[in-house]
Design a protein around this nucleic acid. Structure first.
Lengths: 207, 207
DNA sequence: GTCTATAGCTCGATAGAC
DNA sequence: GTCTATCGAGCTATAGAC
């Protein structure tokens, strides 16, 4: 134990158990439906003990929501940055789509809780998370704009609509894809095929 | 007033006001966060009066959830059925996508409440709605399969994944598109462009 | 049809023992 | 760090007046 470690291991572990339990319960039942006593019980303690680690239920949900976005943003940013400089639009978008899906399902309680309860948490918690959402959308925005300028993505594509289509469709997989039964690489490939090439056997001619 | 009209107009109107108020509040705050008193107040009555029209809060949410799906299913099915028999895959999918978005935003409190709280309502309400969701997905499934057989949609496309991508991305527009500021036809066209043709300037070559 | 009143619970949060 | 005990508030649902 280093001299600069002020927090005990026990406190950190209890705090983490509270967050994990809260993320899972918020995902399953919503924000208002989950009581502090239920979070405490799932974390192996009594209701009153939670207030040693968090000052309010709202403080817990803020951390849960932010963790969900940060995990996905970090994974996608790191993946994109690790690609060769000469990567094509197709290679880059495919890698980003796979990374987004991997992060979603690796931290599924946090990311699913974020998608499901964001609109239902107290205003202060929503505002805290909104900035992180905007930053993540901006990451994709820069990526897509770069390829529009290079001419690899079709001119005329509504960049913002495309990004929100992409993120919205990927996040929706949390509602139906079973990571224990399906193949995530296959899912990412199918989604990439549609988003990059469309589903028509022959493209429509420009009007 | 016909002899077979047993219900009074007043009862029907109060019932409709309760459902409208419930849909709006559930959409904004979630299921558990909305009290029966709040629904009643938004409908212009007191808490106890709601029980003249509905036997429980759960009965209200079941009707709200089902209405959201039925409205979209009905609009899309009617639109597709009204197309000329010789319509192409592109024409049909574009019409279906526009119809889905139109229904979403025409009944936005009901459809948005459905998307947002489905996973958080009591099990009985979720099961009631699940059948309707499956039927709506099957409508799109038959549509897509028809065009796969005709060769208008690419062989190898994972039909189920594509349908859930499509529905998921369209439903996600409820979270960001402002019907009062944006153009719904334009949104439908942008989404159709991406889903039908993809965003790459030149399609990837089959490997 | 809508009201008032209330039974029986559970909630978030706090206080203080250990 | 976690406990027990509790406050004040709000919840769903019901009963019965009007």
């Amino acid at each position: 134990m280093s001299a600069v470690t002020y927090k005990t291991d026990k406190a950190d572990q209890s705090r983490a158990r509270i967050l994990d339990a809260a993320a899972r319960l918020f995902r399953e039942e919503g924000y208002a439906a989950v009581s502090l006593r239920a979070i405490a019980a799932a974390a192996g303690m009594k209701g009153g003990s939670v207030y040693y680690h968090f000052e309010s239920k709202q403080a817990i949900v803020i951390e849960v929501l932010d963790t969900g976005i940060i995990a996905v943003h970090g994974k996608v940013a790191h993946t994109i940055d690790s690609l060769p400089a000469e990567s094509t639009a197709a290679e880059t978008l495919r890698a980003g789509i796979l990374a987004h899906l991997q992060a979603l399902f690796e931290f599924s309680d946090y990311s699913s809780a974020n998608v499901r309860i964001y609109s239902q948490v107290p205003g202060a918690a929503r505002e805290s998370n909104r900035r992180l959402r905007r930053e993540y959308e901006a990451l994709w925005g820069r990526l897509v704009e770069r390829f529009v300028e290079r001419g690899e993505i079709r001119f005329g594509t509504d960049t913002r609509a495309f990004i929100l289509l992409l993120i919205g469709s990927l996040n929706a997989t949390l509602e139906w894809f079973d990571i224990n039964r399906g193949n995530l690489q296959g899912l990412a490939a199918s989604y990439s095929d549609v988003l990059l090439n469309g589903v028509l056997a022959e493209r429509e001619t420009k009007s």
